[in-house]
Simulated scan of single mutants.
Amino acid sequence: MAGTKRRTTGRISGENVVIEVAWMYYQQGLNQKEIADRLGISRATIVNYLQEAREQGFVRISLNSEAFTTHRSAVELCQAFGLKAAYVVPDESADTETAFYRVVQGAADWLPELLAPGDRLGVAWGRTIYELAEATAETRIDDLAVLQLVGSMATPYGFTAEACSTRLAQRLGARCYNLHAPAILSRAELAAELRAEPIIHDQLARLETCNKFLFSVGTCLPDSHVVGSGVASQEDLEWYVARGAQAVLCGRFIDGTGRGIDGPLEPRMIGIPLERLVGLEMGILVTPGLDKVEASLAAIRGGYVSHMVTSLGVAEALLASA
């Protein structure tokens, strides 16, 4: 904030006054007027200092996860779909974009609680996962590894696979293992040769050591990111949809029961096989919008999901389809 470092309030100045204000407000429970009177500055300045404290990371505001995991809809999701836990955020007054960010923030707040030292967290890609990484507070979990599960793609989006894994690893203080290969190649023979290369072979083998999996499913709608990212063409999408595709998981198509659809893209892809993602210690699905209800149902039915983060509206839609 312009002028902060030049402003003085008696014995404190600069960054110290921001910390002092934050302490008085959050720890001592003083209101803004009481702090303003004590420091001899305006209430508007106190508001600015509190905002700066949050922006600088001096203050982290979080809600107790139990408020969301013990919510009636969260409990019903677990009962209906056999989940171990669900985290449901309110969305009654929220528009689509606001609801999206509420779910993302909820997932970012809950994720560190779900991880333990020594975990190997496999990470999918997409806007949801990237924004989740951005929203995750910096922390450190000992001996945590983050693994990119899908190869790279030439995409107009900022949320490439390597960007998602790298950013999340930075936030969690984890080692990051990216996959240094394209997500899709032009020929199956070329993909097979690349998988056999010692470096790529070792990287793919490492992916299969993941014990937890963080992802959001993609849709099979015409504007699906699987097309926009160049992993599939519009013709590919139509081919898979005609054969029952309901969702995209780590760049691969699955049907309504969660089974992978064997098609022309599979031999050309570089990434973890779908069967390696079933029955892990933890599969954390983040579903921020109603457009992903059918895709989420497919992932749940396929055995990929043990934990879920979503909004109340999506939870109700899922329960209505149970």
Score class of each variant (00 low, 15 high):
residue 117 P to K: 11
residue 90 P to A: 13
residue 138 E to P: 04
residue 128 T to F: 10
residue 132 L to S: 00
residue 79 Q to D: 14
residue 102 R to W: 07
residue 65 S to H: 14
residue 166 T to C: 07
residue 107 A to S: 07
residue 136 T to S: 04
residue 154 A to E: 14
residue 88 V to E: 03
residue 68 F to E: 04
residue 89 V to I: 06
residue 87 Y to N: 10
residue 117 P to M: 07
residue 119 D to W: 11
residue 89 V to P: 03
residue 165 S to T: 15
residue 168 L to V: 12
residue 105 Q to H: 15
residue 160 T to V: 00
residue 157 Y to L: 14
residue 65 S to D: 05
residue 125 W to V: 12
residue 144 L to V: 10
residue 148 Q to Y: 12
residue 94 A to G: 03
residue 80 A to V: 12
residue 110 W to C: 00
residue 146 V to F: 06
residue 130 Y to M: 11
residue 138 E to W: 04
residue 66 E to P: 00
residue 128 T to S: 11
residue 98 T to K: 02
residue 127 R to A: 04
residue 111 L to K: 06
residue 109 D to C: 02
residue 120 R to K: 15
residue 91 D to C: 08
residue 91 D to F: 04
residue 163 A to E: 03
residue 89 V to Y: 03
residue 94 A to K: 11
residue 149 L to P: 03
residue 130 Y to I: 01
residue 149 L to K: 00
residue 158 G to R: 15
residue 167 R to D: 02
residue 121 L to H: 02
residue 80 A to R: 14
residue 131 E to W: 08
residue 118 G to V: 12
residue 145 A to N: 01
residue 156 P to T: 08
residue 110 W to P: 04
residue 68 F to N: 00
residue 163 A to N: 12
residue 160 T to A: 15
residue 144 L to C: 08
residue 143 D to W: 05
residue 71 H to Q: 14
residue 153 M to E: 14
residue 155 T to V: 13
residue 88 V to M: 01
residue 136 T to Q: 05
residue 109 D to H: 05
residue 143 D to C: 05
residue 95 D to P: 03
residue 165 S to R: 04
residue 93 S to L: 14
residue 113 E to D: 14
residue 162 E to T: 09
residue 85 A to G: 02
residue 127 R to N: 13
residue 64 N to Q: 08
residue 109 D to R: 10
residue 129 I to H: 03
residue 83 L to Y: 05
residue 83 L to Q: 01
residue 113 E to P: 02
residue 147 L to I: 15
residue 133 A to T: 06
residue 157 Y to N: 11
residue 137 A to F: 10
residue 161 A to N: 12
residue 77 L to T: 00
residue 148 Q to E: 15
residue 145 A to K: 09
residue 130 Y to T: 06
residue 117 P to I: 12
residue 78 C to H: 02
residue 92 E to G: 02
residue 119 D to I: 09
residue 65 S to W: 12
residue 162 E to F: 09
residue 90 P to N: 05
residue 106 G to S: 01
residue 72 R to P: 02
residue 126 G to K: 04
residue 70 T to S: 09
residue 83 L to R: 06
residue 152 S to F: 01
residue 150 V to R: 07
residue 87 Y to A: 00
residue 135 A to G: 02
residue 131 E to G: 02
residue 118 G to F: 10
residue 157 Y to R: 14
residue 137 A to M: 06
residue 90 P to R: 10
residue 73 S to I: 04
residue 84 K to E: 15
residue 77 L to Y: 01
residue 164 C to S: 13
residue 121 L to E: 00
residue 73 S to R: 13
residue 155 T to A: 11
residue 99 A to S: 13
residue 106 G to V: 07
residue 155 T to I: 11
residue 163 A to M: 08
residue 120 R to F: 01
residue 82 G to S: 09
residue 85 A to K: 14
residue 69 T to A: 07
residue 84 K to T: 14
residue 115 L to I: 13
residue 143 D to K: 13
residue 154 A to T: 13
residue 106 G to E: 01
residue 143 D to Y: 10
residue 76 E to P: 03
residue 68 F to Q: 00
residue 94 A to E: 12
residue 78 C to Y: 07
residue 102 R to L: 09
residue 64 N to M: 09
residue 71 H to D: 15
residue 107 A to W: 04
residue 76 E to N: 11
residue 124 A to H: 09
residue 99 A to G: 01
residue 168 L to K: 10
residue 113 E to F: 11
residue 83 L to C: 07
residue 68 F to T: 06
residue 130 Y to G: 07
residue 76 E to F: 02
residue 111 L to M: 09
residue 67 A to E: 09
residue 119 D to K: 05
